[in-house]
Every structure is written in C-alpha cells, then in structure tokens.
Design a protein around this nucleic acid. Structure first.
Lengths: 189, 189, 189, 189
DNA sequence: AATGAATGAGCGTTCATTCAT
DNA sequence: TATGAATGAACGCTCATTCAT
C-alpha cells in the first residue's frame, strides 16, 4: 500500500490553498512552480493531482463558485422584500470585498488568456453563467431576463470599479439604490 | 549621420500606432517583437524609445484615455431627452464593441500592475475618474453622485460581461433599459 | 503475508506481456507507467522485478528473438521449390507486417543502446545471427554464405522500407522477385 | 546595423555542424540544449535560425541528402557497364561506412518519433524518396519499378546489417553480387 | 539613431525512479 | 510483496532585453 492519501480530499485541500496564489498574481502570471511551492509540494505532485494549469484553474473556479453561491444565499430565505434582499446582496459583497475583487480579476484575467479561447462556448462556462443568473432570478424574484442581465451587469460593474481602484463607489449604497430602482421600474410597468 | 527626428514627436507617433496592437491581443499576449513589427521598426528601435514593455504600456494608457473621452462626447449635444441619450450611449458602445472590450481589458490589466498601485491614488488617475463621471453628469443630466456612480458601474459592467464572453447581454437593449429605470426612479422620488 | 510467487516465473510472464506494449509504441515512446498499466501492476511492482527500463528492454529482446525464429520456420517443411519458399517468406512477413516492422525497430533501437555496443560481440548476439542465417540456408536451400547474407540484407531492407513509411514497396511482390533472381543467378553460375 | 551576419550562410554552417550531433545520439535523444552547446550558441540563437527541432532536422536531412547524392553520382558517368556501376555503388557506401550507418540510424530514429507522424505522407518525404529512386533508375539503368524497389531495399538492408553490428556482411562484395544477380535476372527475362 | 543577432532565465509539462506505507 | 504518491531534473520552446555593429 502506498502512502495513505485520500486522493479526492487532498485534491480539494490543494484547491482551497490555490485560490490565494492565483488571486495574488493572476492566472497568466503565476507559474506552476510557484503554485507548487506555495502548496508545499513538487511540480510533479501538482501534476499528479491536476493534469494541467487550465484544468487546475477550472476546478478552482468550480469550487469557488459553488462556495460563493451557497454562502451568498445562505440566509436570504428569511428576507422577504426585494429591498431587503438587495441590501443583503450589497452587504454580502461588501464583507470580503477584497476576496470578490480578486475573484473578479481572476475571471477576467483567465478569460483573456490563450487557454480560454473557445472556452466561452464550453459547457463549463455556460453552466457557470446559468447558475449565476439563476441566483438572481430566485433571489431578487425577477423573471424578465433582460432585467436579470441588467442586475448581473451592475453587480459585476460595482466590483470592477473597486478593482480599478475607484474607492468612492460604495457597494452597500449602490445595492441599496439598485433595490429602489428595480422597484420603481417594476411598479411603473 | 543620425536621422533628424524629434524624439518626443516620434515617441508619440509610435504610441498612437501601438494602441491597436495592444488592444488586439492584450498586454500579456502581445510580444515586443510583434509590437516592433507592427510599428515597422526593429526591437532595438522600440527599446530606444521606451525602456521596457511596462512603461510603454503605461504611456499608451494615458494616451488612450485622453482620446477616448473626447470621441465619446463628440456629438451628444443635439440629443435632448434622457432616454435618447441613454440609447445613444448604448449605440456608442455597441459600435466598435470589440474595441471597447479590449479597451476595458487594458484598463483592468493596467490597474493590476504593481506600478499601478501608486497610480490609483495619483493625480492622473483621480482626474481620469472625475472626467469620466462628469461625462455622465453632463450627458445623462444627473446630479446625484450616487446615481452617477450607479450608471458608471452599470456601463462598465455591461462591457465586462461581454469581455467575459457572455454574449446574451445586448448592449443597446441594456442601455435602453437603463434609461427607463433611471426615469422611473427619478419620477418616483 | 507476501504472495507466494516464483520470482523468476513471474518475471517471465511480465516479459511476455511486455512485448506487445513495446512493439506498439517503440522503446522511447512508451513510458514505464504505461507498461505497468498494460501489465496490470503498479510501477512499484514493475521496478521490483526489473531495476530500470533499459534492462527490462534487454530482457525483452532476448525473449522476442527466441520466440520469433521458431514461429517463422514452423510450417515451411512442406514447401518444396525455392520459389514456393521465397513466396512463403514474403507471405510470412506480409501477415503481421506491422508486428515485424515494430520488431525490426526494436532490434535497431536496441542495437544503438550504449550497453548494446558490448552486446554486438557477445556470444548472445553472435548466436542470434548464426541462427538467423541458418534459417536462410535451410529454408531457401543456399550454401553460399555471401548469397545468404544477400538474402538477409534484402529481407531486412524490405522491412526497413516499410518502417520508413515507403508503402509502395510490396513485401510479397519483392520476395517473389527475390526467388526469381536467386534462381536466375544460380542457374547461370 | 546589427552584427553583420549572412543569415542563410550561417544557417548552413550550423546545419553542417549539426549532423554529427544528431548522429551521435539520434533524433529523440539529443536535446536542443545539447545541440546549441555543441554549436557554441545559446538555445535562443538556435531557435532564431530554426523554429523547432523537427524543422531543424528536416533542413539537416535535406542538406545531407543533396550532398550525398551529388557525391555518390559524381564520377559515375564514366562507368559504362551495370556491373561496374554496381561495384562503384558498393565502394561508395564502403568508404564513409560509419557515416552512412549514422545516417540510416537517424532516418529510422526520426521516422519512429512522434514528430514524424503524418510525415511519411508529406511532400518533403515523398520528394526525398523520389530523388533516391531516380538515382537508382538513372544509374543502374533500370526501368522496372519493382526491380528499382528491390535494389533500394537491398542497399538499405546492407547498411542496416552493419548498423546492427553484423560485420560479416561486406558491402563491396554484396554490391558486386547485386550486379551479377540483376544481370542474370535481366538476361533471362 | 537604428538594427536584429544573441542571450538565458523561465515557462508548462513529462517521466524514470524512489520510498513510505 | 506490492502500492502509487512523490520527486525533480530535464524537455522543447518563448521572449524581454542587451549589445556589437
């Protein structure tokens, strides 16, 4: 019997530790050697668990998104009005803002990389977006897809502003405004 | 006998031509050789005018931003209603969408540069953001700074979605919706 | 409790199964992992029986050659004329041509091994060649050693052409021609 | 003006020096670093002149074949009879036998390498074989393509035997016999 | 000023081999 | 005896940068 290791568990552990490494430097800039070193393993071991950089990143994102959504939606059930929920959304992003900024940067960085070409039509990516949008549908209680896109754009935009270093934008304040605007719009139509 | 050349003028010319090259492939992907080739000079010459890739890129961004704003606002004066203007905004981004996507990517890439950290508090960057917002103020006819930020976030978010490859988002449609939402919101309050 | 296994017998069994694996991909291309997998054992076990890839390969070649000659000569006894036998030779190589090509490649690969340099003067190698030639003597019914060498060269050459990818060479046709040429030559002298 | 170098000339010089390096270790075993070192340049320089290992090898072979054929056929014009020519062929291979053995090994080694997959149908390879065969046609004065293939197989086989370390095969003697056999065969038919 | 040949550290990845269990 | 996780040197190749001309 070899060294006793739960392959899948260890994979998950590595993935967990990977996130910050990727987030610190971006997909393209961090090297597999640096990741291995950061994880305290050899490159060989890293490749033993993940066949290549792209797939490592893919697993990372899957992990991240899964966790994100479950955290974000954890205690939204008790919130009744749209306005309450919009404000909870703002609070969610505002806590761990640095994390969400990193997160966004990673997605952007990867999407522009050679490795991502042809990726945007992939099942994986499509599924990601669907899951993302379904959170908006369910949570804000919206059925108009154009409006759902609107909210998605806005939310990503808010994070982006902070990523760009524009600190005057206040995430909570903006989401609060979002709630009001959506309500005003829906009431009128 | 050296060619008689105005060093600074030639620098500016090179910069101007550089823009498309960077915008086509992104900062990380384009190589100095490719840039030199695209400019019709040798790598040696390129390095004669710019000490390294990063500095070349920084100069480029400065140039780009300056030009961009003046183009965007060129013929908006004749549009009267908010809705008209919101829709013009959508059309502006929708034409040359690929350009605007790359443009955004370049800004993001730039903002993540180690050297850009200081930049974000710099006079240059601040001025840039102010100018950006004032376009929104003037153009959409909004005075509430939170609402101006909202619109800025949204617009950047729309571009970002496309950068991420989410093609279902329609820029014109989204801006049209923006106009309606802003109106509904302002009418109500 | 260790499995009760006759070490040498198991070695031989592994060797037998190894052959196809090497023959399919060639010495350089197949990895120890692939071999182990093909044998249904772990890499650890493979290394338990053979200290390294080279020695595994050497044992393999010894095994292969021994087996090959006995197969080739199995049912040639009933063929009477030289021409019949020459054509049988062609058919023999033509069936399992892919195998013979790989086989030749393995021999060539082996012969170029650093460790094989000593081998070429070794009793083993000498004996091998003698046995090879004696097949030609017996089978084609030739006693002139130069002519035997000629046939040996030709046969190996035909296989080599195919190894090099020259598909226009037809093994059966060539061996048929060989029969005619030998006959013409022997009749004349 | 950069360092003054005749690009094509230098390429040719590098190619010339490359041959022994490849021949010593085989295509797969020699590394680009070792080649560069052997040539006294950096890997970067090597890649400046040749885009990859495969193409480097391709140029090498082209060079080699061109030279080989012109040397081989240089003074065959004055030889009149087939027998004289066959014997000249033997002498040609016998002088520089070590070179021809290396040469054959290189071709075999390459043909089995991953890089060569799909290569055997390439224009380059086809042209090589055609040129090779046309030497046989012209020189030995043969028009029957099967017979030309026969001779090609035989010649390659002779070299192969020596490559395999079978020193009892005498190249000159074998080619002399070839001449006689071809004559006997053609006289009879 | 201008060229492009030259450099070499570093990339993602592979794989023979070792070793704790 | 048997396992497969772990290693790390080495591969083909890239590219920002330097420098002799």
């Amino acid at each position: 019997m070899p060294k006793i290791v739960d392959h899948n568990l260890y994979r998950k552990e590595l993935l967990e530790k990977c996130f910050d490494l990727f987030a610190q430097k971006g997909y393209a800039s961090i090297t597999m050697r640096q990741i291995a070193q950061g994880l305290g393993v050899s490159t060989g071991t890293l490749y033993h668990y993940f066949p290549n950089k792209k797939i490592l990143f893919e697993h990372l994102v899957e992990n991240m998104v899964q966790r994100d959504i479950s955290i974000a939606t954890a205690d939204w059930e008790k919130l009744k009005t749209r306005q309450e929920r919009a404000e909870a959304l703002g609070k969610y992003f505002n806590s761990n803002l640095a994390y969400h900024i990193k997160n966004s940067y990673l997605m952007i960085d990867f999407s522009q990389h050679q490795d991502a070409k042809g990726y945007q039509n992939s099942e994986f990516w499509q599924r990601l977006c669907e899951r993302y949008k379904s959170v908006i549908y369910d949570f804000i209680g919206i059925e108009d897809p154009v409006l759902a896109d609107f909210i998605m754009c806005f939310v990503d935009g808010v994070i982006l502003e902070r990523l760009l270093g524009i600190d005057t934008v206040d995430v909570v304040e903006q989401c609060t405004l979002l709630g009001k605007m959506v309500t005003a719009y829906l009431d009128k139509n």
